[in-house]
């Protein structure tokens, strides 16, 4: 099944400041979408709008044919990495994901182990999250976003704190999500990396989509 996110004339104003301005987009699961723009350009707000965490001031966001805040409050199946992941300091990586997935109860222990392994961490590592390096924290955040095999995967600056091995790992993760039919949206301020990771990119400036570019089979 193909998954879609459609934004129709979406505007978001916070305290008289327009952070997303009349954006219309249609994203599909056959292409990995990259959002690029400088800090404060509106990438994260756009992602928050897609996830239902914030409401559009005008316009509508439609996920797989259902309108957010009208038919549904949040996407039915969505994995998220938004800004810096924050987990419980005193738990291991496995313990954190086990707690996170306990709410829906959809992921098995095997799913958790696979997700942790996929991002290059050791599922049997008892090291507490507080002792993780920044790169390990980011990897665990990526694992949290994909552990339940969601239909939609949204990652804001997933390359933050990752070294070159980490970026390679991320490419593999994104490829796997695309192959299993998930709709993937990424944001990054580094155009070169984003083009490596995405099939189509949109450039955002001051909350407006100023350019869209098909990257092709970059991988």
């Amino acid at each position: 099944m193909e998954h879609t996110i459609e934004m129709i004339n979406v505007t978001k104003t916070i305290r008289k400041s327009t952070v997303v301005n009349d954006v219309s987009l249609k994203l599909t699961s056959d292409k990995v979408t990259g959002l690029m723009g400088i800090n404060g350009s509106g990438k994260t707000m756009l992602m928050r709008l897609m996830t239902g965490l914030i409401r559009p001031t005008e316009g509508s966001v439609i996920i797989d044919g259902k309108e957010l805040h009208k038919d549904i409050s949040f996407p039915d199946s969505c994995g998220l990495l938004l800004e810096n992941p924050a987990f419980i300091d005193s738990y291991s990586g496995y313990g954190n994901l086990e707690l996170l997935t306990s709410v829906r109860g959809r992921a098995t222990a095997e799913d958790i182990r696979n997700a942790i392994s996929l991002v290059g961490l050791d599922p049997d590592d008892k090291k507490k999250y507080r002792k993780y390096s920044l790169g390990m924290k980011q990897r665990l955040g990526i694992a949290a976003a994909i552990v339940e095999k969601p239909d939609i995967v949204i990652m804001d600056e997933p390359t933050n704190s990752l070294d070159t091995d980490g970026v390679d790992m991320l490419k593999g993760v994104i490829r796997e999500q695309k192959n299993r039919g998930a709709l993937v949206v990424l944001s990054c301020h580094d155009m070169l990396i984003l083009k490596e990771l995405s099939d189509i990119t949109y450039k955002i400036e001051s909350g407006i989509i100023v350019a869209g570019e098909e990257v092709g089979e970059a991988r």
């Binding site: 996830t51 965490l53 996407p75 998220l80 992941p85 924050a86 987990f87 996170l100 949290a144």
Partner: peptide, 8 residues
């Protein structure tokens, strides 16, 4: 933190 994921 990951409470956002939980909310969704």
């Amino acid at each position: 933190g990951f409470g956002k994921n939980v909310l969704i």
